[in-house]
């Protein structure tokens, strides 16, 4: 682990929703170009933690954060942090596939238009590349101007991933990206993640332990806002050091 390079680090991260202490003293180092799974029972703080990395928790009024979170070496809670740049670097895929009710093309160019730092002729290339990356290009190339809402849920979720890829981020956060999909589609998204980790760092929140075991390189187990155990997935699932971790992954609670 030490030989690799960490792209996200948290130091004594605490997060409060009003008086509720949602994340307690989290120290975590996420490796670049690896898939890190965050697991734990509902309400353990795994979704909250993943939303720290692109500061989506800022949308909640009563939220308060202490400690440090370094993304590519920069503290994202420093006052000079530009949220627009941060969220361009750290993309997010949500639980329910949520394409805009626009054409496939407009969904993909949404981010580009907003950042307006790509010229129009690049759009075509970027659309093609990001659809190829999520294996949708062959199906979609002839109907880019059709609405994205007629796609299957799996295709919609792939499109949402492509929408993030179009912005050329470093890190992709996935918050239970397969929970709305059937088992076959889930496996195919997991395969896609294996492809994507060659170029991107992926942090995935999942309540599906098989998914964490199958698809991730590192696993972090959270319980009641605390990071109980973090390490290589094969260790966590074969020889967990903490009793709580063992109880959870063997299905004794949660």
């Amino acid at each position: 682990m030490s030989s690799e390079q960490s792209i996200i680090e948290t130091h004594s991260l605490n997060l409060y929703y009003g008086k509720f202490h949602a994340l307690k003293d989290i120290n975590l180092a996420i490796q670049a170009q690896r898939i890190t799974a965050l697991i734990g029972p509902s309400g353990c703080g795994k979704s909250t933690l993943v939303r720290v990395f692109n500061r989506m928790n800022d949308l909640i009024e009563s939220v308060r954060v202490t400690g440090e979170v370094l993304v590519e070496g920069r503290n994202i809670f420093a006052p000079e942090t530009d949220l627009i740049t941060l969220r361009k670097e750290v993309g997010m895929v949500f639980q329910r596939p949520n394409p805009f009710p626009l054409s496939i093309r407009d969904n993909l160019t949404f981010g580009l238009e907003i950042h307006s730092d790509y010229s129009k002729q690049n759009h075509t290339e970027i659309i093609e590349q990001s659809l190829k990356d999520v294996l949708l290009w062959n199906d979609m190339k002839d109907r880019l101007s059709q609405t994205a809402l007629n796609l299957s849920l799996e295709q919609q979720q792939r499109l949402c991933i492509a929408r993030v890829l179009a912005m050329k981020p470093q890190i992709i956060l996935m918050d239970e990206p397969c929970s709305a999909l059937d088992p076959i589609a889930t496996l195919r998204i997991e395969e896609l993640m294996q492809e994507l980790k060659k170029n991107y760092t992926i942090v995935i929140v999942t309540h599906n332990m098989q998914q964490a075991a199958r698809a991730s390189d590192y696993t972090a187990f959270l319980y009641l806002g605390e990071l109980i155990e973090f390490g290589e997935t094969k260790h966590i699932f074969s020889a967990p050091e903490q009793k709580k971790t063992e109880e959870y992954i063997t299905g004794r609670f949660g």
Partner: peptide, 12 residues
Amino acid sequence: SFRIVSLSLGAS
């Protein structure tokens, strides 16, 4: 979700 996705893509 429209607002959240848009913000997560870095829109102001």
